[in-house]
């Protein structure tokens, strides 16, 4: 069953959506969503997964951080520190059953790495599920700026690049989302330490139509150095759901996720 509640954060109301069972089994999942339009495109999949987990007794939480989704504020209010504070404040009062399992999708994985030390003050992490994690700050920015570059091509005069504008302390509008110099600096300042996840039970689901895992994904997995007995990195031959507005057939992603989360593995 789905429900939601607006939480009072540092700057205003932000939405926490919850899927829960009438007979909860004490298992909890917290989701860290992707960035900007990718979050919209992933929403249906989160909902599908959470509906199935809730049917099996789980309670699942999906935040819309301040300035994103259905929360108050503008996208230009995006602030990694604010999001971390709001989430940690909520976790402190929510008193969730421990451990809390985590699902981080795309940018959510980068965000999770950034807030990991603060999060560990609030929860005992359980299993960690990654959907197509974006773990490289520069690559994240490059992908974001590519859209700006594409819209620049439509202009007759040569326009400055997104990074040039942001370096000059000017906000940049990318496909309807305002990226501020402050947020840009926060991303640039992130030093994702993959080894933080070394001793956790991980499942990394990479989606690609290529026959092999991409090299950056393999390298990042080596850096994490997770225990092979409890953790795995899998390639799923599925389309990139975060790039498509229309629903895509990605039942395998849900199936693999359920298997990992509900499977009899060590936390």
């Amino acid at each position: 069953m789905i429900n939601a509640e607006y939480q009072q954060g540092q700057l205003g109301w932000w939405l926490m959506t919850r899927w829960q069972s009438t007979t909860p089994n004490g298992q909890t999942l917290l989701i860290l969503p992707p960035f900007a339009e990718e979050a919209n495109r992933s929403r249906r999949l989160f909902s599908e997964l959470c509906q199935q987990l809730a049917a099996n007794g789980w309670t699942c939480y999906l935040p819309d951080f301040y300035g994103t989704g259905d929360s108050q504020g503008d996208f230009s209010d995006s602030d990694l520190n604010l999001w971390q504070q709001d989430l940690c404040q909520w976790l402190e009062s929510a008193k969730l059953p421990q451990p809390v399992h985590l699902l981080a999708c795309r940018f959510g994985a980068l965000q999770l790495l950034g807030m990991w030390p603060a999060l560990m003050q609030q929860i005992k992490p359980g299993k960690l599920l990654l959907w197509q994690p974006q773990l490289d700050c520069q690559k994240f920015l490059q992908q974001l700026f590519r859209q700006h570059q594409a819209s620049n091509l439509l202009q007759a005069e040569k326009a400055p690049s997104a990074s040039q504008l942001l370096d000059k302390d000017l906000a940049v509008d990318i496909a309807g989302y305002s990226i501020t110099p402050k947020f840009y600096r926060q991303i640039n300042a992130l030093k994702p330490d993959l080894s933080q996840w070394q001793h956790h039970t991980l499942c990394w689901l990479e989606l690609s139509t290529l026959p092999q895992l991409p090299i950056p994904a393999t390298n990042a997995w080596l850096q994490i150095d997770a225990d092979a007995a409890t953790s795995s990195q899998k390639l799923l031959a599925l389309p990139a759901f975060w790039l498509q507005q229309e629903p895509l057939p990605v039942a395998l992603l849900i199936q693999e996720s359920l298997q990992f989360l509900e499977g009899d593995q060590h936390d």
Partner: peptide, 17 residues
């Protein structure tokens, strides 16, 4: 289309505000 209630680039959320 296939949009969520917040709308593409949060258009419906912004319109609501």
């Amino acid at each position: 289309g296939a949009q969520v209630r917040a709308g593409s680039h949060r258009m419906q959320q912004q319109l609501a505000s």
